[in-house]
Each structure stands twice: as C-alpha cells, then as structure tokens.
C-alpha cells in the first residue's frame, strides 16, 4: 500500500517546520523574557503580550485555513483536505482557548478584572464556540461524508466572525486596546516589537508543525480503520465460503 502524496510531502518537510518553530520560539522566549525592556506603564506584565498576541494571531490564521480548506473540500471532495480541516479545527480551538486564558491573566493586573463582556473578548469567545460546534458535528454525525460536508458549511458560515473580531476594537468603544500593528503603521516601541514578531512567526510555525502531525494522525487512523475493516470483511467472507 502506498501512502497519499500529501502525507509524503508532510513527512519530508515536517522536520524543517518543527525545527524552525523550535528555533523561533527559543529566540522569542529569550527576547521576550530576558532581552526586552519592561514597558513604561505596564512594567514586567507586558511580557504576557509575547505569548498572548501570537496565540491569538495564530488562532485567527488557523480559522482562515479552516474556512479556505472547507471551501476547497466542498469543491474537490478530497478526503485528505477533510483530514486537514478536521485537524486544523481542533488545533484552532486549542489556540483560541489558550489565547482567551492568557488574555484573562493579562487582564487582571492591567484592567483589574479577569473577564469583561468587551466586544473583542466576546467575539473571540464566539469563535471558540463555533470551533467547538464544528468538532461536535464531526463527532456526533456518524456518516463520515455527511460530517465532513456539514462541518465545512459550518466553518464557512462561521468565517463571518473573523472581520468582527478584527474590527471590534474600532467599531465599538472597548476596554481592549486597539491594534498595535495595522495598515496605519506600528504604534509599539521597537524594543517590544522584535520579540513579538519572532514569537508570532514561531507560533505560526508551531501551529503548522502540529497541523502536519495531526493531519497524519487522522489520515493514518482512517487508513488503518479502512484496512482493518477490509481484513475483517475478507475474514467473514472466507468463513462464509468455507
């Protein structure tokens, strides 16, 4: 039995992506925890930004991949794309939950509250609920093709939450700070920018690496299940013949 060409590509490049992620995260953590100055107003607490913002960016990037992949799946109906979408949804849910948790930890010393129903926080929570809904559809629906189709439609419909998340700090007066890096320019001190960029690149590479691993996991599980099912079928057929 030969393995799908996409999985062969994943096997070939995953080491480079994983190595790049490890390198960027090591340098980013060094810069973020040791090599960058404390903020003028927030002091040492600003270092939470180097973990919170990359997690949030990567979660949004992950959902973009999920929505794009879902549209691609509905067009091509390639099972390997479905495996990738299923994998990216679980990882995006994880990154979204962690972004919310680290944001809560940052909120306590800066806003003096763990949680507030701010537009950015609420729309980000909705994203987590959409992702959990996607994963529930994939679990509850028994028919694999139907589960893939329903999930893809839900993922595409849920994409409407992304521009709401992005523009929420501009559309509403919120407690959450506005974008530090946007089309209008960069409003962040250069000493704080370097670890933020390195950590964001590292977190995106880590997400890609985890996606490669999880896609293989789902693919291999399905392959083994299919093969075992065929073997079991042959076994029953031979029993019936004898």
């Amino acid at each position: 039995m030969t393995i799908h060409r996409v999985i062969r590509h994943v096997q070939r490049y995953q080491g480079w992506v994983g190595g790049g992620a490890a390198l960027c995260l090591t340098v980013g953590l060094y810069l973020g925890l040791l090599g960058s100055p404390p903020d003028y107003y927030q002091g040492e607490v600003v270092r939470i930004m180097y973990i919170h913002v990359p997690l949030a960016h990567t979660a949004l990037l992950g959902y973009t991949v999920l929505a794009g992949g879902s549209a691609w799946y509905l067009w091509k109906r390639d099972p390997i794309i479905d495996n990738m979408c299923h994998a990216v949804a679980a990882l995006s849910a994880c990154f979204t939950a962690l972004a919310l948790l680290t944001g809560m930890i940052w909120g306590k010393p800066t806003w003096d509250t763990w949680w507030t129903w701010d537009a950015r926080l609420t729309s980000f929570t909705v994203l987590l609920l959409i992702l959990l809904g996607y994963l529930m559809v994939r679990t509850v629906v028994d028919d694999l093709d139907k589960a893939a189709r329903y999930g893809a439609v839900l993922a595409i419909l849920g994409f409407v939450d992304l521009p709401i998340i992005h523009f929420s700090v501009e559309w509403w007066r919120t407690l959450h700070q506005p974008q530090s890096i946007s089309m209008r320019g960069v409003s962040i001190a250069s000493g704080l920018l370097a670890p933020l960029v390195v950590m964001s690149v590292g977190m995106s590479l880590l997400f890609s690496y985890m996606l490669m691993i999880r896609t293989q996991l789902l693919y291999l599980n399905r392959l083994l299940d299919a093969k075992k099912g065929r073997l079991l079928h042959q076994f029953h057929m031979s029993k019936a013949d004898s």
């Binding site: 953590l29 925890l33 002091g43 040492e44 607490v45 939470i48 973990i51 997690l55 962690l98 680290t102």
Partner: peptide, 14 residues
Amino acid sequence: VPNYGFVTGAYLVG
C-alpha cells in the same frame, strides 16, 4: 512593582 506571578502563569498556561 513587577507581577512575575502573572507572567509565569501566562507562559505556563500558554
């Protein structure tokens, strides 16, 4: 006053 507890907590949780 630095809040190292919050920073450590955020990195561990993340």
